[in-house]
């Protein structure tokens, strides 16, 4: 059965490299992937007030379309989409009355039956592929690269939707170990990157990027690996801007986990779209001898 995939806005615009590298990995693994038909925005931020059912409509409509496609599982690459879809999915399962209200509001859609499972691509790689399988496929081990995994918020919190332990996650550490990289731990790995404040409070987000990266660098990291397109932007671009604010500070490269897997598996580097990053990600790969081209 084909794997059904929900893209979301950013994967189709400023994070095309995340999508392309994930597709390349799936192809290498022999999994067929299909983009959902007629998807809409997930809403990004899950509704936080009890009476605000309106903002569950967008994610619910997507879940309905997963059922319409005859699937019981949908995979997302974006952390925000993952979190929002999963929180709505939980809410309607816990509160059948809310589901009834939402179903009757969307009278042109089929009713949601609650059969869909929302999974993140990292979860898919861990649970359905297995990091040991990836390990066997590695052609360019990331030997000598000291990498800090950065999880951010949306993969881990609230606890009900977490893909791993909410305080001490290991999923990216396990992945990096499978790719032969050296993992640098950092207590900032689960702290917020500044999120949407990147629009109106740039310095605040630069400060976040500085704090997170500085700690990683002090512990010897060469690079950061993460999964969320907004975290990537904040740590990479706002982190680069932090160089002007803080003395003797240099931003280190930020990778999506999919890019590092693609590099390690020896897939065509074009799929990684390294040109979209503010801090050159290729330089380090060349320096460490992972990447020859």
């Amino acid at each position: 059965m084909k794997l059904l995939y929900y893209p979301g806005c950013t994967l189709k615009t400023s994070a095309k490299n995340l999508e392309q590298s994930a597709f390349a990995i799936l192809e290498a693994l022999g999994h067929e992937v299909e983009e959902m038909g007629d998807w809409n925005c997930c809403g990004v931020a899950s509704s936080l007030t009890d009476d605000d059912l309106m903002h569950h409509l967008a994610p619910l409509r997507n879940l309905i379309h997963v059922e319409d496609a005859g699937q019981d599982k949908v995979v997302t690459f974006c952390d925000m989409c993952y979190n929002t879809l999963k929180q709505t999915n939980l809410r309607v399962k816990e509160k059948p009355d809310d589901l009834e209200t939402l179903n009757s509001f969307m009278d042109r859609e089929n009713d949601y039956k609650g059969t869909v499972k929302v999974i993140h691509f990292l979860e898919f790689l861990r649970d359905e592929v297995g990091f040991d399988v990836l390990k066997k496929m590695v052609k360019n081990p990331l030997k000598g690269m000291k990498i800090m995994p950065y999880y951010g918020c949306m993969l881990l919190r609230p606890r009900e939707v977490s893909i791993d332990d909410a305080e001490e996650p290991t999923i990216m550490k396990d992945l990096l170990t499978a790719l032969s990289a050296e993992v640098i731990d950092n207590p900032f790995k689960i702290e917020c990157c500044g999120s949407y404040h990147t629009i109106e409070e740039k310095n605040l987000v630069s400060n976040r990027a500085y704090r997170i990266t500085k700690f990683a660098v002090d512990r010897g990291s060469d690079a950061i690996v993460l999964s969320c397109p907004l975290c990537r932007f904040n740590l990479d671009v706002r982190g680069k801007e932090a160089e002007k604010i803080y003395d003797n500070y240099k931003q280190i490269p930020v990778y999506y986990y999919t890019q590092l897997i693609a590099v390690a598996l020896g897939l065509d580097p074009k799929c990684c779209g390294f040109g979209d990053h503010a801090v050159d990600p290729i330089l380090l790969l060349k320096k460490k001898g992972v990447f020859e081209k």
């Binding site: 806005c9 950013t10 990004v44 903002h55 925000m80 990147t198 629009i199 932007f233």
Partner: peptide
């Protein structure tokens, strides 16, 4: 043009 789209949706929501 430069900031990821999801940041805007999130800002407007908040």
């Amino acid at each position: 043009e430069s900031i990821p789209q999801l940041a805007f949706v999130c800002l407007f929501r908040k």
